[in-house]
């Protein structure tokens, strides 16, 4: 009898208690779930709206859109070649300048500088990332472009421009406004992103490994090239790809200094355009469905490129995280 009473009493108490926390929990869990799913919906919405907006242009030009060098609003003939070319070349220049500098900064912060200087230096480099794109743009237009026009471009034309074949990269008059200036600004802008990822992954190297190398008489250079870099290779590449993703999609700073010309010009001293600069310049003034749809198609191409680059970056950094976790 007493045993029966207990068996009844326990479930009843449980039934009474569960709703008190249960509904609250269910509601809160549901709420957080909804907003987490919202993040996915935003990405889904971006893809759907881009595809929908790009359809008229893609239907009209099909795959020829990517290799068509024309951009003519009067005849409604549009192609993505010049913007894609400009996007890739400016990002390439940004990487060529940005990667070695970022590596140097990360090396200095993790291996060379005195401890007290580490935090302020890290903060200053991160402030470089906090300055908005538009500020780099106005600075690039009024300060950097004239400087490059006056000093750097004449020097390039006079030296590298004279090499047969290769010189075509530096042909034409020094304008200041052009692909080179845009790439240079991008390099400064992605520098803090790459440098801070590199610094973070360099710090994951177990001190024991580095100390062992120093202990057998290795120099700082040797420790970095033989121990730190092999250990963090994936993370370094991940950081570089993260910077590349930023450079590809950067808009305002590039719009100010690239010159916005829809021509594929082999010389990096001449004006060009990028996908994001074309969008920023022309979208609100695009008259006609095909014109606007072509611009959205450009946006779609940019989205696909950056998505692939960023996803690769993320996967690489995740892999490093996992292997570092396994080692520890």
């Amino acid at each position: 009898m007493a045993a029966e009473m207990e068996m009844v009493a326990i479930p009843r108490a449980a039934v009474q208690r569960r709703p008190a926390g249960g509904t609250g929990d269910a509601i809160f869990h549901g709420l957080t779930l909804i907003f987490a799913v919202l993040v996915l919906l935003i990405l889904g919405g971006v893809i759907v709206s881009l595809v929908y907006g790009a359809l008229p242009a893609l239907r009209k030009f099909s795959f020829g859109f990517i290799v068509n060098g024309a951009w003519n609003p009067v005849t409604d003939n549009f192609g993505a070649l010049a913007p894609i070319y400009g996007t890739l070349v400016t990002s390439l220049i940004a990487m060529l300048i940005g990667i070695p500098v970022a590596f140097g900064v990360a090396l200095f912060i993790t291996e060379l500088c005195p401890k007290w200087l580490r935090r302020p230096l890290g903060t200053m480099i991160e402030l470089l990332a906090a300055i908005p794109s538009i500020i780099y743009g106005i600075w690039g237009l009024f300060v950097l472009a004239p400087f490059i026009q006056q000093y750097i471009e004449p020097a390039l034309i006079g030296s590298l421009g004279k090499i047969p074949g290769f010189g075509i990269l530096f042909a034409g008059p020094p304008l200041g406004i052009g692909v080179l200036t845009a790439g240079f600004i991008l390099a400064i802008m992605v520098l803090p992103f790459i440098a801070s990822v590199m610094r973070d992954v360099f710090e994951t190297v177990p001190p024991m490994l580095k100390e062992s190398a120093y202990g057998i008489g290795a120099t700082t250079t040797e420790v970095v090239t033989r121990v730190v870099l092999p250990y963090t290779r994936i993370g370094v590449v991940g950081g570089i790809l993260l910077g590349l993703g930023r450079a590809l999609g950067e808009t305002m700073a590039v719009t100010f200094v690239i010159g916005n010309s829809h021509h594929v010009n082999p010389s990096i001293l001449q004006p060009g355009t990028t996908i994001s600069a074309a969008l920023a310049n022309e979208f609100t003034e695009a008259v006609g469905d095909i014109y606007q749809s072509s611009l959205i198609a450009l946006g779609f191409i940019l989205f696909i490129i950056t998505f692939i680059v960023l996803a690769a970056a993320k996967l690489m950094l995740l892999r490093l995280q996992k292997s570092a976790g396994a080692a520890a």
Binding site: V39, I42, L43, V46, L50, L242, G245, R246, L248, G249, E250, T251, S276, L279, A280, G299, L302, F303, T306, F307, L310
Partner: peptide, 8 residues
């Protein structure tokens, strides 16, 4: 999304 181009 954190690094996606804001113009998109």
């Amino acid at each position: 999304l954190l690094s996606a181009p804001s113009i998109i």
